[in-house]
Write a protein that binds this DNA or RNA. Structure first.
Lengths: 152, 152
DNA sequence: TTATTTGCAAATGTTTTGCACACAT
DNA sequence: ATGTGTGCAAAACATTTGCAAATAA
């Protein structure tokens, strides 16, 4: 099975999510299930509004508030990561699903988002933190520029 | 002359800014001059609203819109850098004034912002970009955690 | 004179929230 | 039964914008 712009098989996530709800005494509702199922078959990086519109286009009527609330739940539970591209733009969400941490290169022309990871950068960050007696808990590295296609 | 939380002598910036206005055929207005003068004697990282309130407390009445417009001008002209701490929080501004580029460590408890720079990280970033045939134009690296004081 | 700039209030866009009702447990 | 979750509309919030009046060049 190949996947390119699509993520993780939704089936497995469903199960994990249902378990998550059970273990946290959260309610197992039709809305949550539908939102979660669809969130994991969205394109690689999607905004809350995108998901809301896709659901509605597919005749799944859930309120925007519930989409936001459920996405927040998924982020807290580490099912999704949040990516903030610009201060006043909508956040993007991406599945975590055991994938290793990565950073992003964002094309200023076409908006494409490339993921990459670099262990040396991570190490250097930790070293810099230690040097400053700073306890590093998380970080966000975004590189802006032009992707291969847009550069040509 | 020592400076800790305060930046760059405002006098020099005034001159540079007036030159900038002239060279770009922008108008030399009382509001712009006042905003710029005060912006460069603000604490190290300030929000647009902070500056607006400080001005007003000091009986300099300029509209919030003009503060925002002037800050934008200063950012475009590379007099100020913008720092986005969180998607829905106010942006912070910091003087550039020939200082080298740096990244930030942000304390999640007290909100303090430490500046640091690391040439090796910069180099590795460029290398990663090259590897991905990405033309790197700028980046933003934020490290979140606990500062020395808050960790203890 | 005339093109900018200003101030005000209204608009923006994303996300959150209060509240009454519906529903899972 | 009872505590959660949902939907709706309104609020929040930093920032931007339209427009008429003011002003620098």
């Amino acid at each position: 099975m190949t996947r390119r712009d699509r993520n993780v098989d939704a089936g497995k996530v469903d199960e994990l999510f249902e378990r998550f709800l059970r273990e946290n005494s959260l309610k197992h509702t039709a809305q949550r299930l539908k939102i979660v199922k669809r969130a994991f078959s969205m394109p690689k990086h999607f905004a809350a509004e995108d998901l809301y519109l896709v659901l509605r286009r597919e005749k799944t009527y859930v309120s925007k508030a519930t989409v936001y609330r459920t996405l927040k739940l998924l982020v807290d539970a580490h099912f999704l990561d949040e990516l903030e591209i610009g201060a006043r733009k909508a956040k993007f969400y991406e599945p975590v699903h055991g994938r290793e941490h990565h950073d992003h290169m964002i094309c200023l022309r076409c908006g494409d988002i490339l993921e990459f990871s670099d262990d040396e950068i991570e190490t250097k960050q930790q070293e810099a933190a230690t040097r400053h007696k700073f306890r590093l808990l998380s970080h966000s590295l975004k590189m802006f520029g032009l992707c291969k296609e847009c550069e040509e």
